[in-house]
Nucleic acid binder design. Structure first.
Lengths: 114, 114
DNA sequence: GTTTATAATCGTCTTATGGCGATAGGTTTA
DNA sequence: TAAACCTATCGCCATAAGACGATTATAAAC
């Protein structure tokens, strides 16, 4: 299936990254290329499920794959994806630390007040 | 609802950006804060649908909102989100330009060959 | 206080997504 | 060529997500 617009692909990339299993797969593959038979034992998911997830990342252009005899090897195609994830993490951290700060302020006011 | 882990929030942010309507909303709000009554006519969606989308962006910590009398004003809370979107766009563009290049090569080889 | 305006929420429907086991297809091994 | 291996795909189910109209809640205006 060929992509037509940037918008479609953009959504496809964001969607691909909206699943915890797929983010774990990316992290796992950041250690280097792996065949499915290596990936499977590392994940508590059925073979069909893992295969589907890998394909979603492939279709989003995040992973590449090559066939090596009877196995399929998956690898990171665009390492930029890790910058993306770090970027989101920094946004998430910012929020959580704000929450934490609010929590400390609240805590302090409580312990002072009473 | 308070977030517990970075991972949850990370998924929430990616999911929030996985929808075309919500990306349009962000683009629209990049022009400055707007109340829902201003947003509605700009989108071909029902009031309830737009409200839900805005709330998803709010829950992800991307938008903020303030109540102004009988209206609710939404605004970008974390402008970093636009860096994120640009980043994804550059990944998408890279892929499409590779496709385009492949297309040109194919076209060339066809016109040469026959 | 009744009406109007604005926006969130509820209930419902339809479609999309994630999960699994079973099956199919292709490759190596015996 | 038969068997074993590896992985993609199919069919199914359960849950999530997006859309809408109707309802509810609150604020402003009359």
């Amino acid at each position: 299936m060929v992509e037509k617009t940037i918008s479609d692909l953009r959504i496809k990339i964001f969607s691909a990254l909206s699943d915890p299993t797929r983010l774990e797969l990316l992290e796992y593959l950041s250690g280097g290329e792996r065949c499915v038979c290596e990936i499977l034992p590392a994940f508590q998911r059925s073979q069909s499920t893992v295969s589907k997830h890998l394909n979603i990342l492939y279709e989003a252009g995040i992973l590449d794959r090559k066939i090596d005899g009877k196995r399929t090897v998956y690898l990171i195609k665009d390492p930029q994806v890790f910058d993306l994830i770090r970027h989101v993490d920094s946004m998430a951290l910012k929020q959580i630390s704000h929450l934490a700060e609010a929590g400390r302020i609240l805590e302090k006011s409580l312990s002072n007040g009473r």
